[in-house]
C-alpha cells in the first residue's frame, strides 16, 4: 500500500503515455483489485460455512461435491432450533455479551481516564500488572476462578460469569482507552471546568466523546471475545438453562464425528450472525467519524 502511494508521488518525466490521469486510473484499479482480494480472502470460508448450512446432508456427502447447493433447504436450521435450547443459549449469550461490554466500557474508560490524568506511581505498576491476565493459559486459571466463585456462591450463575469476563477483558480496555485519552489535550477539560463543570462532568461530556472510536474498538473486542468464550462458560455454568451459545455449539463436535454437518454449519452461521449485526450497528458510528472533526476546533 504505502509503496504504491510512494511510487505515485515520485516526480515522473513527462513521457508520452503516462499522463497523470492514466496514472491515477492505474493506481485506483490496483487499489480496487487489492480491496477485492482482501474481501474474497476474508469471506470465502464463511461463504463455505453458509453454503454448507443450506445443503441437505445428502449433498454434503455426495461423491462429487458441488459448490452450489442443488436443493437449498432450511431444514438444518429447523433441526437446530428443534433439538436444542438454541434460543435460550442465544438469550444467555446476548445478556452476557451486552452486560460485559457495557461494564467493560464504563469501568475501563473511568479507569483509563484516571490513569492518563493522574500520575500516581501505583497506576503505572497496576497498568502493567493487568497484562498478567493474558499471559497465563486460561486452562490453568479455571480452577482458581472456579473456587473464588464457589466461595461467593456464584458458580452456575450468569452474574458470576459476568464478573469473570469483565475482570479479564478490562485490561485491554484500560490500555487502549488510555492511549486515546493521552492524545487528548488537557486544555479541553480545563476549558469546560472554567465554564463551571465538575471534573467528572468534564470527563463525561468533553473527553469521552473524543474517544468514541476507541470505545467502539473496545466494544467490538469485548463483545466478540465474550460471544466466543467457551472454556469458562462450559466449566462455570452447569444448568441446561444457563448454557451459552459457544459452549452449546461446541457440544455438536463429538469426539466420534459430526452427527450432521449441515446442523453444525447452521449453528456456525447462527452464532456469527448476531455478531455481524452488532458490528454493522457499531460500524455506522465508526464511519461517521465521531469526534474526528472536533479535534480541529
Amino acid at each position: 500500500m504505502t509503496q504504491i502511494a510512494a511510487r505515485r508521488e515520485r516526480p515522473l518525466p513527462p513521457s508520452g503515455i503516462l499522463t497523470p490521469r492514466l496514472l491515477k486510473r492505474v493506481r485506483r484499479s490496483i487499489l480496487y483489485a487489492l480491496l477485492l482480494l482482501a474481501v474474497f480472502w476474508s469471506v470465502f470460508p464463511l461463504f463455505w460455512v453458509f453454503i454448507s448450512s443450506i445443503k441437505p446432508d445428502t449433498e454434503t456427502y455426495a461423491f462429487e461435491q458441488t459448490v452450489w447447493p442443488q436443493n437449498p433447504t432450511i431444514a438444518n436450521y429447523v433441526t437446530l432450533f428443534r433439538i436444542t435450547d438454541f434460543t435460550l443459549w442465544l438469550r444467555n449469550s446476548a445478556i452476557l455479551a451486552v452486560t460485559t461490554t457495557l461494564a467493560v466500557v464504563a469501568l475501563a474508560s473511568m479507569g483509563a481516564y484516571a490513569m492518563s490524568r493522574f500520575k500516581f506511581r501505583f497506576f503505572e505498576y497496576f497498568g502493567r500488572l493487568t497484562l498478567l491476565a493474558y499471559m497465563m493459559p486460561p486452562i490453568i486459571l479455571v480452577v482458581p476462578i472456579f473456587f473464588i466463585l464457589f466461595k461467593i456462591k456464584l458458580t452456575n450463575s450468569l452474574l458470576g460469569l459476568l464478573l469473570v469476563y469483565t475482570g479479564t477483558r478490562l485490561p485491554f480496555g484500560l490500555w487502549l482507552l488510555r492511549s486515546y485519552f493521552q492524545g487528548i489535550p488537557l486544555e479541553l477539560e480545563e476549558a469546560a471546568m472554567v465554564d463551571g463543570a465538575t471534573r467528572f462532568q468534564a470527563f463525561r461530556k468533553v473527553i469521552l466523546p473524543q474517544a468514541v472510536p476507541g470505545i467502539i474498538s473496545t466494544s467490538i473486542f469485548t463483545f466478540s471475545v465474550t460471544w466466543h468464550e467457551f472454556l469458562f462458560a462450559s466449566i462455570l455454568l452447569f444448568s441446561g438453562s444457563k448454557q451459552t451459545l459457544s459452549a452449546g455449539v461446541a457440544s455438536f463436535l463429538s469426539e466420534d464425528w459430526i452427527y450432521s454437518w449441515g446442523v453444525l454449519m447452521a449453528a456456525g452461521v447462527m452464532v456469527s450472525l448476531p455478531l455481524v449485526l452488532f458490528y454493522a450497528f457499531l460500524q455506522r458510528y465508526l464511519i461517521a467519524g465521531w469526534g474526528g472533526g472536533s479535534l480541529k476546533g
Binding site: 470460508p45 464463511l46 463455505w48 466466543h228 461446541a250 463436535l253 456456525g268 452464532v271 456469527s272 454493522a280
Partner: peptide, 18 residues
C-alpha cells in the same frame, strides 16, 4: 469494511472444522 471483519466474528470451532 464490514466484510473483511468476518474472520474475527466466526467462532474458532466452526472455522477450524471448515
Amino acid at each position: 469494511r464490514g466484510l473483511v471483519l468476518f474472520p474475527y466474528l466466526i467462532p474458532a470451532v466452526v472455522i477450524a472444522v471448515t
